[in-house]
Design a protein around this nucleic acid. Structure first.
Length: 514
DNA sequence: CTACGAATAT
DNA sequence: AATATTCGTA
């Protein structure tokens, strides 16, 4: 019903960037389109330069950036570049197969903000938004409102461009901006100009999930920041970001296997009261191990749900195959959850009042319905994904069970949730949501600790398995429920209404069975 | 030169 | 504590 609560464009910055690709070669057009889509950009392709110009003129405010080939039959790429620069002042990236200096030079001289050589790779497209941003920044200096806007400055600032050709000013200097066009995407850039802080990637549950999923997909033996990054396919994320997270993740794992040799989950939760109900099911490690086929140990899946374990084990063991040891040969049987803290930040925004706690929400149901959930959740303003909340532990809320009434009848549809049987490459991860930067005024305040969910895939297959094997009846809802915690979190709030039962089967099965 | 990852900084 | 950055190594 409220499908379009907000325009994705505003909430997750680089995502939704409107790119116009111009190339007379249909093959390249396709390839580029695909790659750009993967970057979560909104792509429009065009085989004719003239037509491109026409499109641009018709919808002056319809595109954020243009990528054009240099050699085109109907109109010289440089010509197009010129027109664009003159008429709409959009950033233009030129490309060609050869890297002949003179051509590149020409492109640059004509105002190209970048010059890519074919074959073009993802890494080269991931950060093209930087050009849009840069332009905005230099153009609209007037936007001094370093106010709120939890917008994307963070992520943006955070990502590193492996290839900027220019420091920025040069190119844009002297160009006059048009107020008119400045408005549509101003939401993105507002106050970016003044406040470009360093980006700090907040590893939200969602992000972590993708991370774990990637790790599991690759196998611990072979994981490396680079590969993870590629799998995660999140444009603004850098290898360093992943490396850093990986380091932390490994630390967690090693620590776990070390001291926590056989303890079951019981003590894990910091908030017993609330925690116990929704046990951290399988945490990444668990899964990894379990899945990984470590010696039979995998069995001791998170025992959280009393008595359910058995089922879980069985299920888990079933489908899961790819054994890749987390830590080769080390104690495989330990499982714990990686504790993740969700920061509850205070916003000192005038309107909201300092005492409001906010949780970085950014949850997204893996496959579909991310919008259903997200849309509701995300405040329209600023695109920040914060949810107001008190400081209680995330687990504390069990409303879900009550509110979210999903109809248990249709487990079938559920499999989609975890991205289980899904394609191996997480191509669908495009629904990523950059976490909003902490507004200047926000600070990390208190934390609720939750265990990291990593079951994405597990859940996925788990559910699938269930369906397939018709085990549903046997399986306790709890088990099934062992889904991504973030999902629950999401549910905690009152968006039940937005959740489509069929789409989010997980919700059913009384996740929060107390 | 790239990618890792431990150490170290913020 | 969580991330970023640095830096020696492969």
């Amino acid at each position: 019903m409220e499908t379009s609560f907000y325009s994705p464009r505003h909430e997750l910055f680089p995502a939704g960037l409107r790119v116009l690709v111009v190339d007379d070669d249909p093959t390249w057009l396709k390839i580029l389109e695909k790659m750009l889509r993967k970057c979560s950009y909104e792509v429009t392709t065009c085989g004719l330069a003239r037509e491109a110009l026409k499109l641009l003129r018709e919808r002056k405010d319809g595109y954020d950036i243009v990528i054009s080939d240099v050699n085109m039959p109907d109109m010289d790429g440089f010509k197009l570049l010129e027109h664009v620069g003159l008429e709409m002042d959009l950033p233009v990236i030129m490309m060609s197969v050869d890297g002949e200096t003179s051509r590149v030079m020409k492109g640059v001289q004509h105002g190209a903000c970048d010059y890519l050589l074919k074959p073009i790779r993802m890494k080269e497209l991931r950060n093209i938004w930087q050009h849009v941003l840069r332009k905005k920044m230099h153009d609209g200096r007037d936007t001094d409102s370093l106010e709120v806007i939890d917008g994307l400055q963070l992520q943006m600032a955070g990502s590193r461009s492996d290839h900027h050709f220019f420091s920025g000013e040069d190119i844009w200097a002297g160009k006059k901006r048009k107020e008119a066009e400045a408005k549509h995407d101003d939401k993105w850039f507002t106050d970016l100009g003044s406040t470009t802080k360093k980006a700090r990637v907040a590893w939200s549950v969602d992000l972590h999930q993708k991370f774990v999923q990637a790790v599991n997909q690759i196998g611990f033996e072979k994981v490396g920041p680079k590969r993870i990054l590629d799998l995660m396919n999140i444009p603004w994320l850098t290898r360093e970001n992943v490396a850093s997270h990986l380091q932390k993740y490994r630390l967690y794992l090693s620590r776990l296997q070390k001291d926590d040799l056989k303890t079951d989950f019981g003590g894990m939760m910091k908030h017993p009261d609330t925690a116990s109900p929704d046990p951290p099911l399988m945490t990444g490690e668990d899964i990894s191990r379990g899945n990984l086929g470590f010696s039979g140990n995998g069995l001791s899946m998170s025992a959280n749900s009393k008595g359910h374990e058995t089922h879980v084990k069985g299920i888990l063991q079933g489908p899961r195959v790819e054994p890749k040891g987390l830590f080769t040969g080390e104690n495989p049987d330990k499982q714990e959850s990686m504790d993740m803290k969700i920061a509850i930040r205070q916003s000192s925004m005038p309107s909201s009042g300092p005492e409001e706690g906010r949780i970085v929400f950014d949850c997204s149901v893996p496959d579909h319905s991310p919008q259903s959930v997200n849309s509701k959740l995300q405040p329209a303003e600023g695109g920040a994904k914060f949810i107001e909340t008190t400081e209680q532990p995330l687990y504390a809320d069990s409303r879900c069970s009550t509110h979210v009434t999903v109809n248990p009848m249709k487990p079938q549809s559920s499999n989609t949730v975890g991205g289980p049987g899904m394609d191996n490459n997480m191509s669908h991860c495009q629904d990523f949501q950059p976490i909003p930067p902490y507004p200047p005024s926000m600070q990390s305040q208190s934390f609720g600790s939750i265990s990291m969910p990593q079951y994405d895939s597990q859940v996925g297959w788990l559910q699938q398995d269930l369906q397939i094997s018709e085990l549903q009846g046997h399986i306790d809802p709890c088990i099934v429920a062992e889904g991504p915690i973030h999902v629950y979190d999401a549910l905690r709030f009152d968006y039940e209404q937005f959740v489509d039962p069929y789409e989010c089967p997980i919700f059913d099965h009384g996740l929060f069975i107390a």
